[in-house]
Simulated scan of single mutants.
Amino acid sequence: MNKLEIAQEINFKGNLFRTIRVSEKFNLKVGEIYNNQNRIESWCTQYGSYSVPQFHGEYEYFFRIKNAEGHEVDYENEEECEALGAVDCEDECEVLVLPTQKFKIVSISEGFEDVGYCEVELEVAE
């Protein structure tokens, strides 16, 4: 069992969130397709506390998407958690989203100065 095999087992549809920090501002534009760099991405449900650990920098982005599909990690499945390196991570409420699912940017609320982050709303692209 690997990450791709797990991610292909779609068992979730709903609202997802993702927070990342980067060293340079993104050049995001409303109407463009969100670039997932052809990777399986980790998002979280509204009850999760997941933020992408490999991203560091002064600019924080908060992404949200409605009606996204993915694989909600089953933290009671030891084999799945071991394959994903998700041991002792129950509070993350992680959902894996396949790179084939595309999202369109519908709004950008750049608040680096006021609130310290930029909020980006996405929708599932047709």
Rank of each mutant, 00 (worst) to 15 (best):
N35K: 11
G14F: 07
E41S: 15
V52P: 00
V95K: 01
G57W: 03
I108N: 06
E80H: 07
E121G: 13
E121W: 09
K104A: 13
N77H: 07
Y50D: 03
R21M: 06
Y50I: 05
V115D: 11
E24C: 04
S23W: 01
Y59I: 02
V52H: 12
E126C: 13
K3T: 14
G70I: 03
N35F: 06
E121Y: 10
I40P: 02
R39L: 09
F55C: 13
I20C: 05
E9S: 14
I10S: 01
I40S: 05
K104Y: 04
N77W: 03
L4H: 06
I20Y: 05
K3Y: 00
E119Y: 12
N36M: 09
R39M: 10
D88R: 15
E60I: 13
L122Q: 03
N67Y: 12
R18D: 02
R18P: 04
V120E: 01
N38K: 12
V95E: 02
Y59M: 04
I65N: 05
S109P: 00
G70C: 04
C93F: 11
Y34L: 13
T45I: 03
E123D: 09
V30S: 04
I40H: 05
V115I: 14
K66E: 15
G48C: 03
A68Q: 01
K3G: 03
Y117P: 07
G85V: 09
E79Y: 10
T100I: 12
E5W: 02
I20E: 09
E69P: 01
D114H: 11
E79C: 10
D91I: 05
E119D: 09
V73P: 00
E121P: 05
L16K: 05
F55H: 15
E60Y: 02
L16E: 03
H56M: 09
I10A: 06
G48Q: 00
D74R: 08
D74N: 15
E32V: 01
L4T: 10
Y34T: 00
E110R: 09
Y75N: 02
N2H: 12
Q8C: 12
N35G: 05
K29W: 01
I105E: 02
V106C: 11
I105A: 11
K66P: 14
E82C: 12
E94R: 04
R64N: 15
F112I: 11
W43I: 08
L96M: 08
V22L: 12
D91T: 11
F12K: 02
G48F: 02
C44G: 08
T45V: 02
E90L: 08
I105N: 08
N36P: 01
Q37Y: 12
G57Y: 05
N27E: 12
G14L: 06
F103H: 13
V52R: 14
E90A: 13
V22E: 09
W43T: 06
V30T: 11
E110G: 13
L28C: 04
E60T: 15
I108E: 03
E78G: 09
K102H: 13
C118L: 11
I6Y: 07
V22N: 07
L96Y: 03
E5M: 10
Q54S: 15
I105Q: 06
L84H: 08
S51V: 10
C89E: 10
A125K: 14
K66D: 15
Y75M: 05
G85C: 09
Q37H: 14
A68N: 04
E92M: 07
L98H: 06
